[in-house]
Nucleic acid binder design. Structure first.
Length: 213
DNA sequence: CTCCCGATAT
DNA sequence: ATATCAGGAG
């Protein structure tokens, strides 16, 4: 446990040295936009979401309008993010709930957010940490993979990984740590051919010997 | 555990 | 042409 905390701290320091200000790549200018962008980001790259939201947010600046829109109309506009029917339904239902139960505001806790349609634990954590400054570790596919390769977690589920990471990282660093792992996973410790040669963690990574590139 | 889907890397 | 990417709901 103690060694694991030290190891996590070492990972944190090294990644932070490379990226002093790790920030989320989704573009948004308020909690509502971040919520919408993150719902659209399910199984989709942030880059593509940004292409869609750039115009989508001009047309739908608040939950009020989405809540009254038809599924087909929304679906058409978010099509390129994939799973567009599901996401359109989620978005509309989510905005209806925002209007009905939260005066159009985005709730400030993971618990409340998770109750919203289309919002799972990963999305809720992203919103709460980035929009409201609540410490959170959101375990997406990148965090899961990187934590796994670093043996920081051998958990099977994202929920379990989240708990293991929270146990070895100081709470005030949760959000930054989480974002560092996302960026590291997205650009260096990628799924297919991890770029180990240019990895700042190469010498301390338990998975380094198996890789060549 | 299966379904939902377009975009991009190979 | 096909494998892989990237979360949530039922």
């Amino acid at each position: 446990m103690v060694e694991k905390k030290q190891f996590a701290g070492q990972v944190f320091e090294r990644l932070l040295a490379k990226t002093p200000e790790p920030k989320i790549e989704l573009q948004y200018s308020n909690p509502f936009q971040l919520l919408v962008a993150t719902i659209l980001a399910a199984q989709c790259t942030d880059l593509r979401v940004n292409m869609v939201t750039k115009t989508f947010f001009k047309e739908y600046p608040t939950p009020a309008k989405i809540a009254r829109e038809s599924q087909m109309v929304i679906a058409e506009k978010i099509k390129s993010t994939g799973f567009y029917r599901n996401k359109a339904n989620s978005l509309i239902a989510c905005c209806q709930r925002l209007m009905a139960d939260y005066q159009g505001e985005v709730p400030r806790t993971v618990g409340e957010l998770e109750k919203l349609p289309g919002v799972g634990r990963k999305t809720a954590s992203v919103v709460v940490s980035n929009a409201y400054g609540v410490p959170a570790i959101s375990v997406d596919t990148h965090v899961k993979r990187v934590a796994d390769r670093l043996n920081l977690s051998k958990a099977k589920t994202p929920e379990a990984t989240e708990e293991e990471l929270k146990a070895v990282v100081a709470e005030e660093n949760w959000t930054v740590f989480s974002q560092l792992l996302v960026l590291h996973g997205r650009y260096v410790c990628v799924a297919r051919n991890p770029k180990c040669k240019q990895c700042t963690l190469l010498d301390i990574c338990p998975s380094n010997e198996k890789v060549t590139s």
